[in-house]
Design a protein around this nucleic acid. Structure first.
Lengths: 251, 251
DNA sequence: TATTAAGTGGGGTTG
DNA sequence: CAACCCCGCTTAATA
């Protein structure tokens, strides 16, 4: 990884178009060709590009220009004055971050306890294809009628939007020949299962006949207690995989 | 800005929970207290936190531990071995990035040419509050009926969701006493104005009575040609504002 | 402070 | 490759 401090300006064209006025910033170039320009505020870079093709040229004013190009975008950085440049090797094949308590975990956990959603509810499928995107959970209520469940940690208005879209999509399917038996989607209902449902979202969901279900925030501790394949094994796996490949300074 | 290269590990708790296994990475600490941990791939940090309260302690193994705390979250970094540490001042009051061709620009441009949306259409308001979020454009059609317009550069399914939510929200308002006259929202319609509408989105929009309108991709050149208050003035304003406040090394 | 939405969103997954 | 969705999204604007 290279770190450069420089009085620089930049122009990006690609998915958008941006220009960065002249100023002293840090430029970080990674081993894979990724580059980012940082000011001294916040975590996001001002400009950036990943896995780019690098080339150095000189402009009409005799200044160094770094070009980073990929198929669809390009970033051009003018180094008006370079104040510092250092380079240090980092770990290769970084195992990366272990996330816990993600929506995916929550979804998996709820699928094991469908009774949380309603008495007599039965789990059918996760990530069920509706035709307008996969819905988190497909379950059957006590009467055997399908319920389409959008799982969220925090539910906002867009969760209601999503859920309605799925309900309407499955209704278009009519009767579905599922491996677990025929499912008649013509009377499908929508449901939002979330640890936190915002007041406005709650109101809107009820108005649109999407049933809100609150999941107790204690689910996480129960999850890590019951589900042994989550914490340490995943970590150990990642670490050992990384170590076996790693040839970096950390070895 | 400080840049540290260290063999480190980290634990974050806050909006989620993550753990970062031990490895050599770069740690960047900015002037405002923001911190981020980078590996040698991509532009995104592994762990990060903004505007945090810093404290340094020592753990049971005699290693240095950096804690970054804010009201709702905390990041703890164990420095097993520090390999490098440098510090350099950057520009203060960075003018930041100038974006061009944003959705906001597109929205403003369309509002000047409401005829694009339909013959005899009149512009009423941008960012009109619907009660379920602000809609990009509120216009009146040739008959004087309100049309709620969602503007997008690229329209996906969520654009249809949004637009429908706005239409349904304004319909709840009934007759609205707008400064430009009474508007009867009971017959409000929805519209998506976008440079690119994806096939599936187009299909879904039609199905849900949201009228799709394609904006020619040439809008950008027309915009920068006709709208003089966009490019150079904004840049100059930002730069001069920054310079007047700036006390950094770039001055 | 909370809500809402855009972003060069990033990144992973699935068809 | 496109479509779709989660993310500790981040950041900005607005009420």
């Amino acid at each position: 990884m290279k770190v450069i401090i420089a009085d620089c300006s930049a122009i990006y064209t690609g998915r958008g178009d941006t220009s960065l006025p002249r100023g002293v910033r840090s430029i970080i170039v990674k081993e894979d060709g990724s580059v980012s320009i940082h000011n001294d505020v916040g975590n996001k870079p001002l400009n950036y590009m990943k896995e780019a093709q690098f080339s150095e040229v000189e402009n009409a004013d005799g200044e160094i220009v770094w070009n980073f190009d990929s198929r669809k975008e390009s970033l051009s950085i003018v180094l008006h004055r370079t104040l510092m440049m250092t380079e240090m090797p980092l770990m290769q094949n970084d195992p990366g971050l272990i996330r816990d308590g993600t929506e995916n975990h929550l979804q998996e956990w709820i699928s094991r306890y469908p009774e949380l959603l309603g008495e007599g509810y039965r789990f059918v499928e996760r990530e069920f294809a509706t035709g307008n995107g996969p819905v988190d959970l497909l379950v059957l209520d006590a009467k055997g009628l399908p319920v389409v469940v959008e799982v969220k940690r925090v539910a906002m208005l867009t969760a209601v939007d999503q859920c309605r879209r799925y309900v309407e999509a499955v209704k278009d399917q009519g009767v579905h020949d599922h491996e677990k038996g025929f499912i008649d989607f013509s009377h499908a209902r929508g449901m939002i299962a979330a640890v936190d449902i915002r007041p406005k979202t709650l109101e809107w969901a009820k108005k649109k006949d999407i049933e809100p279900v609150l999941i107790p925030s204690t689910w996480k501790s129960d999850y890590s207690y019951t589900e042994e394949s989550v914490d340490s094994p995943e970590l150990e796996e990642k670490v050992s995989a990384a170590e076996s490949k790693d040839e970096s300074v950390s070895g």
